[in-house]
């Protein structure tokens, strides 16, 4: 799990491997520390994620809720159809904005903040 800042200063969390009941608490901490830092926008990159469970979904929902409470947004980058399917079958693809690349996510958030 890695936290970066894109060129546009958009905070980005890059996840790798399995995000489940064991590892999702780390993701929660990362999101909370970014929120505490005052960010209103956040992108979470799931490109290198091989497995994602309901605990991870719950953490992402919590992050999105908190960002929206601050009138901000949290978007996902997820080109992997297998991981995307978890969002689709739970209907969460209608709640999250999901993009294929960091550039797409970045330009969408830039448009929103204009």
């Amino acid at each position: 799990m890695d936290t970066k800042t894109l060129e546009s200063e958009l905070p980005l969390i890059e996840l790798e491997g399995e995000v489940d009941v064991y590892t999702a608490p780390q993701l929660k901490q990362q999101i909370l520390s970014i929120l505490e830092g005052g960010a209103k926008e956040l992108a979470v990159n799931l490109t290198k994620v091989e497995y994602l469970d309901s605990t991870a979904l719950g953490v992402l929902i919590g992050g999105l809720k908190r960002m929206r409470e601050k009138e901000g947004n949290m978007v996902l980058i997820c080109p992997n159809p297998r991981i995307r399917r978890v969002f689709e079958i739970t209907g969460l693809d209608k709640i999250f904005e999901i993009f294929n690349t960091e550039q797409e996510a970045q330009s969408s958030l830039e448009k929103e903040s204009e």
Partner: peptide, 15 residues
């Protein structure tokens, strides 16, 4: 509340 456990149970029934 959309608790992870409820989401987990929902996923099982869908899968």
């Amino acid at each position: 509340e959309q608790e992870p456990e409820n989401l987990g149970a929902l996923l099982i029934t869908l899968l």
